[in-house]
Design a protein around this nucleic acid. Structure first.
Lengths: 140, 140
DNA sequence: TACATAGATGCAACTTTGTTGCAAAATAAA
DNA sequence: TTTATTTTGCAACAAAGTTGCATCTATGTA
């Protein structure tokens, strides 16, 4: 784990600091997506709010995480797949938001279907958000 | 126009007030989606900020408008189609965000494609957001 | 048309969320 | 170990959103 974290930071040319290691660990541990608030809570307010913002911004810039669109006004972040890097993102996978437990997950295996746009429009990126009931919540 | 606005409000059992009429007119005039800030600006700050929030909330509850997921942290709203009402939304159409002019539009004719979810997951709603270059910006 | 009442508005105060500049501290390279 | 570069935390601020309450307005009824 520690290894993986250092590798990722090194590869992105980010210096290895307490907050970056801790926050990246959170993303690796957590399957789903994390909102800014989640991160503050889970780091036990050990880091300044500003530091968390800047760390997330740095991860975004380097293509380590990506932001997930939501209809409420909470921004969430999730780890990018390997193919992502600075400048080029490939987060064409589907995001799933469970309406029961509230968790947000990346369905890495489900690729976003093609969309036929009207004449004149060109697409660069397609993001799909599915709302529903997740695996765990369907069982209970 | 005035007619249409009154009809919509009546149908939703909302009393006809200055702010509701004005804001609903804005949505009817505007093809695309509006953010809270847009609305405040275009009403010329005639109404209190709180009133705008509450008006949007009321429209949301009644199914007159719906919120559009975005990856930045700006919440946008657009008119629902006729089939929407209190409790049941059918905003399965595709949303398009132009990266040049920043406008958000509902592509009413483009329906969201079906998505195959992993076993155990059930979908209630699918929202698709396409980022790219809109018709107008592609011409210039 | 006037009236009573339920609902909507505006104000003030507050909370949450996000941003910026700068000095102090930590990291990376020599 | 020393130096140069980054990063951090603090303070102060700006923006976004919420709540309670008194006042005002819209609506149905007489």
């Amino acid at each position: 784990m520690q290894e993986a974290v250092h590798d990722i930071l090194k590869k992105s040319q980010l210096s290895i600091t307490g907050s970056r290691v801790k926050i990246l660990e959170l993303f690796l541990e957590e399957q789903g997506a994390l909102a800014h608030g989640d991160i503050e809570r889970r780091t036990g307010e050990k880091f300044d709010r500003v530091t968390v913002y800047r760390t997330l911004q740095a991860f975004l810039n380097k293509g380590i995480i990506h932001s997930i669109p939501t209809a409420d006004n909470s921004v969430r972040y999730a780890l990018c797949k390997d193919e992502c890097g600075e400048g080029h993102h490939h987060d064409d996978h589907v995001h799933f938001v469970c309406e029961i437990c509230g968790n947000t997950q990346c369905l890495a295996d489900v690729t976003a279907p093609a969309v036929r746009l009207p004449q004149g429009y060109t697409a660069r990126q397609i993001q799909v958000v599915v709302n529903g009931k997740c695996k765990d919540c369907n069982q209970n």
